[in-house]
Nucleic acid binder design. Structure first.
Lengths: 182, 182
DNA sequence: CACTTGTTTCAATAATTACTGAAATTTCAG
DNA sequence: CTGAAATTTCAGTAATTATTGAAACAAGTG
């Protein structure tokens, strides 16, 4: 593997493991991300110097996360893997999957905790805090879910607007009037 | 520990470990988050049923992340720990720390990779991909850094606006005219 | 259907990460 | 100072998670 690519792949593996993603899985992904053409499993084995079975499991994991796509080459029985082109798309998929796997279960845990009758002052307070957390997570993820339905280029423009939209609101709070959107 | 709180703390520990945060650290934080009053280390030991040294290390970690505050009670030599009240604040701190520890180093790795002269077509392509990633991360985190300087209530209002700001932009893209902000 | 090629599964093992208890350190009251 | 209380450190151990190799499986091919 070229040093340039090696550095990137290793760094990515390190980062992945800090975010709770298996090191090899992250490395496989990084490698596919920078590769000019799709790779088959054995090419990955050679590049990363890990076992064939490890690569197989890693690719399976990445497919479960919808982060890689497969394709066949004519006259070749091996499967070729590639990462989607658009970085926004990748980010969106990652966010959706983590929402489904981690955030949604948390929200439902919180909701069911909020249903029980508090038996003492401590429980009452704990429920209040859980409600705050629930509301916060719902707002954040709800906003995100709405916003990510916008097209990548609109998103980019929205980001580039930076905080100016917020500053507008802040001005309004200080007694100004918000210009009507119509 | 009350069952209501126990469920919350355990769930949080589980989630933490999926996001690369030590299980005990997450549990300590969850416990402090729902507690009506600040707790001292031994109270945490008792509630979570882990060793005193584990709690000590966990609290140290949380302090390094600026996620807990300490206070003294009069006539008591023990340190009392508590989590900040405001959930936005908590989120912001977490985001800032992860930015500093993980995102910034990644950006600088990418930048230095982009400086080297590509030696072949593969490297040229890899650099292009790294540039895309660099641009994306910078945009996202830059936007976030700007936006999080807004006050919590402005942020809340911005979120509640949902994607309507984006829909406005999208309309403009389809040939309409954007109302001037002046 | 026997054989080749590619892929997956899974029990055993390796590597990593977390946790503990004993000892060291800090802090403060008397 | 001295000693008691609180906390921290750290080497050893436990628990968890990742990786491997061997075997099973699947899908063509001649």
């Amino acid at each position: 593997m070229k040093p340039l690519i090696q550095t990137f792949v290793m760094h990515f593996g390190e980062m992945g493991s800090r975010w709770g993603i298996n090191r090899t899985v992250s490395q496989i992904y990084a490698l596919l991300f920078v590769s000019r053409e799709p790779l088959h499993a054995d090419a990955i084995v050679e590049a990363l110097n890990v076992s064939r079975s490890n690569v197989s499991m890693g690719l399976k994991e990445l497919q479960a996360w919808r982060l890689v796509e497969t394709q066949m080459e004519p006259g070749d029985r091996r499967l070729y893997y590639r990462a989607p082109e658009d970085v926004w798309d990748i980010f969106r998929t990652l966010a959706e999957e983590r929402q489904r796997r981690e955030v949604d279960p948390t929200l439902s845990m919180l909701r069911s905790a909020l249903l029980s009758e508090p038996a003492c002052e401590d429980e009452r307070h704990a429920q209040q805090r859980m409600e705050q957390m629930h509301e916060f997570i719902e707002m954040l993820t709800g906003w995100f879910a709405e916003v990510q339905r916008l097209s990548p280029q609109t998103l980019t423009r929205l980001m580039r607007l930076g905080s100016s939209v917020g500053r507008l609101l802040e001005l309004a709070d200080r007694g100004g009037r918000l210009p009507s959107p119509n």
